[in-house]
Amino acid sequence: MLAELPSGLIAEVERAAKLLATKQRICILTGAGISAESGIPTFRDKQTGLWENYSAEDLATPDAFARDPKLVWSWYQWRRQQVASKKPNPAHIALAQWQYHSRSTHHQLTLITQNVDDLHEQAGSVVTHLHGNLWRNKCSRCDTPYQSQSNGSYDSEDSINFDEALIICQHCDGYIRPDIVWFGESLPVQSWQTAEEAAADCDVFISIGTSSLVYPAAGLAQLAKHNGAKIIEINPYPTPNTLVNITLAAKAGVILPELVKRMGVL
């Protein structure tokens, strides 16, 4: 696969591998691009079917849920159906293998994601979610986590209930909502603290499938850079960012398997 890439990109992959092989603490942030390679639409993609006249940004807000909870809940149930059959791609698998390998070599690899799917977990990774989890629910009023009484929880494709009927919290009678960080809401305190600590303490910060210009990604990369870390970006559409030391302008599913192979992980 790597032989099909331009010689300049091959050289950059090898340079990144040599850098990473000498470092102990790696912080990785993944975004929508890595999930898109598994067929999961991004927020920038045009909505389809019944939702083509709606904007994702207009539905993923507390105000939208307060105004029309049935509409927002139905949209998330539709999104869950779109994501349920998707599987990890070679990028997810390579990251999981790298993380597993790092435990035996006493390296520290912290994986953080802006994605709400569970493809990293399916691949075997331990990951910190900054924007919540599509398969979890909570009360919109009291924040109590919700588990379905009929099928346990959204733990696997076989146990998912896509019913669009609204659910009432047993504790306060509020409506149950997806446990997602919506526009206008704060990131989870513990998850953000984990991300900040990992970025501040890393030797190399890797941005995969997400812009290095948009927050919170930009804030983490800047924090890492400020503390002396090298920055690697893996993105077929790289951002014009002076923070980045090495740019790998190709899909993560192509780059990551080759990168970890050259590091001796595979």
Rank of each mutant, 00 (worst) to 15 (best):
V214G: 00
Q170F: 07
R15P: 05
Y76I: 01
H171Q: 13
E121I: 12
A60W: 04
P41Y: 03
Q147C: 06
C142M: 09
Y54C: 05
E57V: 09
A94P: 05
I234D: 02
S159T: 14
F43K: 03
L220V: 06
Q108Y: 03
S156Y: 09
N245Q: 08
S35F: 10
K87N: 12
A96V: 02
R79F: 01
S211W: 04
T61C: 04
E233K: 03
S148C: 14
N115K: 11
G124E: 06
P216E: 02
T128M: 05
R136C: 08
M263N: 02
N53F: 13
G124C: 08
P216Y: 01
A66Y: 11
V204H: 05
A195D: 06
C142D: 15
K18V: 12
Q81W: 12
S55V: 00
A16R: 01
D201I: 01
L187C: 02
Q24F: 01
N235Q: 08
S102E: 08
T48K: 15
E14S: 13
A91Q: 02
A195C: 09
D118T: 11
Y76G: 03
H107S: 13
L20A: 01
K225E: 10
L19W: 07
H101T: 00
K70N: 12
L19Y: 03
V189E: 15
A198D: 09
L71G: 05
I234L: 10
L109E: 04
P69A: 05
I234A: 07
E258R: 11
G132Q: 09
I93F: 05
E37V: 05
S125L: 09
V116A: 13
W51P: 09
I180R: 06
S38I: 04
D158A: 14
L9N: 08
W182I: 00
